[in-house]
């Protein structure tokens, strides 16, 4: 079949559709008036729920920090403060993602818009990576001056190495949780399930877009 024949076939398909298609004006008008909202399928608002839960959690931590600070040890205060700062950054990144999603302009050219969408989707990984930075606080909150004074060996040879290890692990995950490691076994084990599949696929789609752009 030659090119012209293929084009003609498509034209005949178009003519067939001209005779057979009709639009339901009632639904069109409803879509315009956004009456749709009353009859919507359950909205996909998990992301907003996550933000609200995150904000409530931040408020709770801040409340405890404020009230505990006067009588808790400096180590607890600093640990909780680090946890609070990292959580604020993570929730902030998540809110920024939602704002950017709402600002997406679908009338942009296809490659540009799809690239933005895929990058936004995969940026959820960055939020997870940032959360790993608070890893060491799980081993710093229980340090106290009594431990340092009375059991220096336990402090220097057990507590500090654990803090150092968790710091190393936290920084390692922060640096390595990205789409470059998508095919690594540890990554696949860590990000397993339907929700993650969509994010991981967005990484592949970014590659597909780059390939398409090259020609």
């Amino acid at each position: 079949m030659e090119n012209l024949e293929i084009i003609n076939l498509w034209k005949q398909y178009d003519e067939k559709l001209e005779k057979s298609l009709s639009l339901n004006k009632k639904i069109l008008v409803e879509l315009q008036q956004q009456k749709a909202k009353k009859a919507l399928k359950p909205a996909r608002n998990y992301k907003w729920i996550a933000v609200f839960v995150g904000l409530a959690y931040i408020a709770l931590i801040a409340y405890f920090l404020y009230h505990l600070s006067s009588f808790a040890s400096i180590f607890i205060n600093v640990s909780v403060a680090i946890h609070l700062v990292v959580t604020i950054i993570a929730v902030g990144m998540y809110i920024r993602q939602l704002v950017l999603i709402n600002e997406i302009d679908r009338s942009e050219d296809i490659l540009q818009m799809q690239q933005k969408m895929a990058k936004l989707q995969s940026s959820t990984l960055k939020v997870i990576a940032v959360c790993f930075l608070q890893f060491p606080v799980f081993a710093t909150w229980n340090i106290n001056f009594e431990l340092i004074d009375k059991r220096p060996l336990a402090f220097w040879f057990i507590q500090i190495p654990i803090v150092a290890l968790l710091t190393y692990v936290g920084i390692w995950f922060y640096k390595n949780i990205n789409l470059k490691n998508i095919n690594k076994r540890w990554f696949r084990m860590m990000f397993y399930g339907a929700e993650w599949n969509a994010i991981l696929k967005s990484g592949k789609f970014i590659d597909e877009i780059k390939e398409f752009e090259k020609g």
């Binding site: 076939l9 005949q12 067939k16 005779k19 639009l23 339901n24 879509l31």
Partner: peptide, 26 residues
């Protein structure tokens, strides 16, 4: 997606066939 209305069809398609060969190619 979240904008979908339930119930009636937005685009209604009536039965319309091309000739057999064209239908197969299509």
């Amino acid at each position: 997606t979240e904008t979908v209305l339930m119930g009636d069809q937005l685009i209604e398609v009536a039965e319309e066939k091309l000739e057999e060969g064209l239908e197969k190619n299509l």
